[in-house]
Amino acid sequence: MTGVLIMEDSLAKFLFPALMLFATGLLGAMFKRNLIIIFMCVELMLCGAMLAMLAFASEYGDIRGGVFAFFVMTIAAAEVAVGLAIITRLFVVDGTISTKNMNTLGD
């Protein structure tokens, strides 16, 4: 029944996959062990949030959501560049990028 409703409403048609993307990313970021995959999940969340914004922007014919998406993409690119550098460096120093082995810090 929900599925039918989603296909009829054009806003929900975009909003539903956006929130699914966000939820997938959140679950992955919480439960995955590999840092690269966790990082990709964070980017997935970013995509989901951005898609939600674009869904509203196209539904109401407002251009600012689309423009803002470009800014967010720039931010995401900077974050990815720094994040991947840190993860690569951790692999060089520690020899692993699994969160299971991250135990340098603590009591």
């Binding site: 959140l26 969340m45 970013l46 989901g48 949030a49 951005m50 939600a52 914004m53 509203f56 967010v72």
Partner: peptide, 15 residues
């Protein structure tokens, strides 16, 4: 990163 995404989703809803 996760908190930034929450912020962005919040902006999307408010928008």
């Amino acid at each position: 990163g996760v908190s930034g995404c929450l912020f962005l989703l919040g902006i999307a809803f408010i928008y």
